[in-house]
Design a protein around this nucleic acid. Structure first.
Lengths: 129, 129
DNA sequence: GCTTGACTTGAAGTGCACTCTAACTTTCAG
DNA sequence: CTGAAAGTTAGAGTGCACTTCAAGTCAAGC
C-alpha cells in the first residue's frame, strides 16, 4: 500500500498547480494533508478522488467557499449526509438551469449565424456580378 | 422617434448598473455613446439590442476583451462579416463543448446523489430499529 | 562539498469584471 | 432658492481564484 504521493504528483494527476493545491488546503477545500517525516505533504487515493470531485464541482460553477462548506460537512461524517444531499440537490438544480440557459443562447447564436450566412452570400453575389 | 434613453433607463432595461455600462464603454464593448446637449449619454433601440447581444455572449462565457474585438469588427461594417461569422462559429463550438461537459457532470452528480439516498435510507433503518 | 530539484512558508502580485468614491454639474419640483 | 435626483469624470477599491516571489529546508547525484 505504497500509494502515497507528493504534491507534485497530485499536481500532475489533476492538472492543478502545486501552488493551487496548497492554496486549496489553506482555504479549507482540502483537509490539512498528512505529512512525511520530512514535513512534505503525502496524499492517498482517497485524497485524489476527493480532489477530482472538488474539481468537478468547481468546473460546474460552484465557488470555492461553497465547496469548503461541503468539505466541512463531509468532515463531520455520516451525521451530515442529509445536509450534504441537500447541498448537492441545490447545486444540481442550478446546474440544470444553467445548462438550459446555455442551450437557449446556443440556439439564438445559431439563428444569428443563419442570418450572417445569408448576408455573406448576398455580398458574394454582388461581388461576382 | 423619441426612443432615446438615458444610462439609468438602459440600466433598468438590461439589469446592468450604470457604472457597468460606462465601464463597458471605456473597455470598447459599447461604442462611445451619443450625447444630449448637456453631455449626458443617449441610447437608441439599436444600442439596447447590441447590449442585449453582448450580455448573451457574456453569459455564455465570452470574456469582455473578446466581445470588444467582435464589437470592433462590427464597427468596420459589412467588410468584416466573414470574420465575425468565424468568431461566432468558434464561440458556438466552445459553447457546445461546455454544455456537454456540464451535462456529463450533472449525470455524475445524479449518480452520487443516488448513493447518498441509499446511505441515508440505511441510516434511517438503523435509527428506527 | 556543491549543485539541482522538490519541497516548505507567508506575503505580495495578477487579471477579470466590476463597484464604489469623490468632486462636480445639470434639471426639476416645491 | 433649495434640495433631491440624475448625470459627468478619473481613479481607487473589491472579490475571486489563483500565481509569483522571497527565503528557506532537505535528499540525491556528481
Amino acid at each position: 500500500m505504497n500509494d502515497l504521493i507528493t504534491v507534485g504528483e497530485l499536481s500532475r494527476l489533476t492538472g492543478l498547480s502545486t501552488h493551487a493545491i496548497r492554496f486549496y488546503e489553506a482555504k479549507g477545500v482540502l483537509r490539512p494533508a498528512n505529512r512525511a517525516p520530512n514535513g512534505h505533504r503525502r496524499y492517498n487515493q482517497a485524497d485524489v478522488q476527493w480532489l477530482e470531485f472538488v474539481l468537478r464541482l468547481k468546473s460546474t460553477g460552484m465557488p470555492l467557499a461553497e465547496i469548503r462548506d461541503y468539505a466541512e460537512q463531509r468532515a463531520a461524517g455520516d451525521i451530515s449526509l442529509v445536509t450534504r444531499m441537500h447541498m448537492l440537490e441545490q447545486h444540481q438544480d442550478r446546474l440544470t438551469t444553467r445548462i438550459a440557459e446555455l442551450a437557449a443562447c446556443a440556439q439564438l447564436l445559431d439563428e444569428k449565424m443563419r442570418t450572417y450566412r445569408k448576408a455573406i452570400l448576398a455580398q458574394q453575389r454582388k461581388a461576382a456580378k
